[in-house]
Amino acid sequence: MSPHQSLIVLARGGYAARGVLYLIIGIFALLAAQDSTKPKDSHKSLEALLGQPFGYFLVGLVVAGLLAFAGWRVLQATRDVDHHGKDFKGLIIRAGLLAGGLVNGALAFFALGLLLSGIGSSDDSGGQTKDWLAHLLSWKHSNLLVYLIALVPFGVGVAHIIKGWKASFEKYFEADEDVMRYVRPVSRVGLIARGAVFIEIAVLLAVSGSAYEAVDPPGMKEALDALQNLPAGWLILIVMALGLIAFSVYSFAEAFWRKINMEVPGMKGA
């Protein structure tokens, strides 16, 4: 397989893995609308998946896909294959892509740890995270640092909502209008829903900072739990879960029809 073809497989496999992961999260979030003990985040969803028939095989596929996606994100950021440029806006987008690559890489290694060592090892990492945050919040004025960290998911969330509202993702698709007629509305809903979750995570982080509490940093589970605790929260959670499933459809659509720009400097066959 040529380097050109390898990068295409890397990118498309990564988008598909992200689709699988968000499909799992969305399904469990739907179930959690009636049973609050159901998982609502990527870590717990992977643990629950591991207990299903063929669970180890499925998690293994997710690990491979997430590693591929992380590699593709790093390539997008460092080689600028989507031509975002080197101006301020372009550098911000590329920094976000790099951060996404690191996050997906970390999630892949978490899932790999589940496969190699069992679920018990994941509890230790959670305790280490809590200890790390407790140490961080013991510093004077460290809540200001938490506010700054909260700007990251807030910015990602706003970017997702804008991307979904304007349907700017279309320029990266190679599909005719017959396909986009179905892909477009589902993708817009999915991007806006994921953006809303990121903004809620940012708000929860800011609240943690102002309260000066040594707790685990809030993530998707805490965001969905907060929605579930609102009046008619079960209905809100169902709507958000359907939005996350829509985002998984968007990821699968990228796996099939996204334009994979191979104009990478120094690579033959692009």
Rank of each mutant, 00 (worst) to 15 (best):
L49V: 06
K86G: 08
D80S: 06
G55P: 05
F57W: 11
P53L: 08
L46G: 03
E47F: 04
P53V: 08
L66M: 15
L61M: 00
K86E: 15
G101I: 10
V81W: 07
R73L: 12
T78D: 07
V59L: 14
G55M: 07
F57D: 10
G105C: 05
A70W: 05
G96H: 11
A64E: 04
R94Q: 14
L50E: 01
L50T: 02
Q52E: 08
G105W: 04
L102A: 11
G71I: 00
V74I: 13
K86Q: 13
L75V: 15
L98P: 01
A77W: 11
G55I: 08
L75I: 15
Y56E: 15
W72C: 00
A77R: 09
Q52W: 07
G96K: 04
G90E: 06
L97E: 06
K89T: 13
L66S: 14
F69C: 02
V63N: 05
V103W: 05
L50I: 04
L91E: 13
F88Y: 14
W72H: 05
S45P: 04
L102G: 06
Q52N: 00
L91P: 00
R79S: 04
G101D: 10
G101W: 09
D82A: 00
L49G: 06
E47G: 03
V62F: 13
T78K: 08
P53Y: 08
A48P: 03
L50A: 04
R94F: 12
F54E: 03
